[in-house]
Each structure stands twice: as C-alpha cells, then as structure tokens.
C-alpha cells in the first residue's frame, strides 16, 4: 500500500526502505536522534527528501494536500492545547471533507460522534482541551484524526507522556481501530506486542525491517537498545 524507497535526508536519514501493507500495524523504533520523527515528516510530505514514497502507483508528492489529508492522518509528538472544546477539536478533523464556509452535514456529524465514541471521549466532548489530562488529550487528538476518516494513521510517539497502564490501554485502542497504522514508539514492549512489522533505525540508518516474528528470532533489539528480553505468560517484555 505505502512504499518508501531509499529515503534520504542529508545528515539525518540514509536509504530507508520499507513497505506498509493495508490494515497492518508498523512500529518504528530507535534511539533518540535516530531519525524517526524526520522519517514521519517525510511520509507526511512535510519535509523534503530524496528517494520516493508512493501510495499504490502514485507518488505522495503528486497528491494534493487536501487529497492526501483524506488518505493519511498525521499526529505529531507534541500536541498543542487550544482553548476550544473537545467537540470543536474533533470537528476540525472534518476539514479535508468540507468546503470553505460550509456547515457540517449529517455524515460529518456521524463521523465526529463515531470518533468520540471509539476513543471514549463522548462524555468529555464539552470539556475544554487545556483541562484534559495527558492521556485524555492524546485521545481527543486521536478522535480528531479518526474524524478525518483516513485509511492510514501516522502517529509520532502517541504514548510518550502516558504512564505504563494508560499507554497500554491507548495502544490497545489503536490496535482495535482496524486502520493501517504507522506508529513511532518508545516503549519497546508495546511496540513489539502490537506490531505486525517493525522498522528499527539507528543514526539514520535502517538496521531492521521485517515481521515481528523475524525480529524476535534475532537479538537485534537486545544489542541495539542494551535491554534484556523476558517472556512472561507468553508476553515478551524488554527490560534494562
């Protein structure tokens, strides 16, 4: 579905190539400064890069910003706290589907209500965004991207400011969405638990891309992140 071929960004990324299949969960992991966010910005067409990123047979750069917004939603790592209600925030997710000055129609309202329900934010829809906790804010923004009704969700460290329990719940929620997910994650255990495919970056270079199964038969993670792998009730946990 989404194919990245030899992505290069001077001094940051070097020949990164991978393919994302429809409906799959791809985790991108790597140490700080390994180029994860730069790669996400390239995929979202928000910075210049060498190589190609294509969707089917079409280059992402040939797709207009509005059409791109109907295909892929991108949520960056640091989220703002606009002084608007959660409902108004989620409403903004319909922007690529509404023309200038037009009112929201029935299908827009349905998408918004559905996004709020799926993320468990219906009860909080009248709350102002700055009054939300870190986890609630992340869910509110996820609801906004879900209202965008795209096939692909590209998320940059969505669980960065959450405690372990909330992060696990949030990742479980992402997994249930049934969308094509490309998620940059810092929690190795969660990244591996839910991923179909894993991309590992180190200093801008791709050191692994493949299925979770293929990754776990190697000691790539242990070597690169200096962690130990522990199996607990069939669940794999990485610990220092």
């Amino acid at each position: 579905m989404l194919k990245c071929n030899n992505i290069n960004v001077k001094n940051i990324l070097c020949d990164v190539s991978f393919e994302v299949k429809r409906g799959s969960f791809t985790s991108i992991i790597g140490k700080n400064g390994s180029g994860k966010t730069t790669l996400a910005n390239c995929i979202a067409s928000q910075r210049k890069y060498g190589g190609s990123i294509s969707l089917g047979n079409t280059s992402m750069l040939d797709i207009s910003p509005c059409d791109r917004a109907r295909i892929m939603a991108y949520l960056p790592q640091s989220l703002p706290s606009p002084n608007i209600s959660v409902y108004d925030l989620v409403t903004l997710g319909r922007s690529p589907h509404t023309s200038l000055g037009a009112k929201l129609n029935k299908s827009d309202i349905e998408s918004i209500d559905n996004a709020l329900a799926v993320t468990g934010m219906t009860m909080l829809s009248n709350r102002m965004v700055p009054s939300l906790s870190g986890g609630e804010k992340q869910r509110a923004f996820l609801a906004m991207t879900l209202a965008q009704n795209t096939d692909i969700l590209l998320l940059d460290e969505p669980t960065a400011h959450m405690d372990m329990h909330v992060a696990a719940e949030f990742t479980e929620l992402l997994n249930r969405l049934g969308k094509t997910l490309i998620v940059i994650m810092h929690d190795l255990s969660l990244a591996i638990k839910y991923a179909d495919n894993v991309l590992i970056l180190d200093s801008g270079k791709q050191i692994f891309f493949g299925s979770k199964k293929d990754l776990l038969v190697t000691d790539t993670i242990e070597k690169n992140f200096n962690v130990r792998k522990i199996e607990n009730d069939g669940e794999i946990i990485f610990t220092v």
């Binding site: 910003p65 892929m72 690529p96 991207t145």
Partner: peptide, 12 residues
C-alpha cells in the same frame, strides 16, 4: 492554531 504539522496533515 493547532500547529503547522497538524494543519498540513488536515490538508491546509
């Protein structure tokens, strides 16, 4: 007001 990255992602 949501920042350039989110605005661009929403087709602006």
């Amino acid at each position: 007001c949501l920042g350039d990255a989110i605005a661009a992602s929403l087709g602006v």
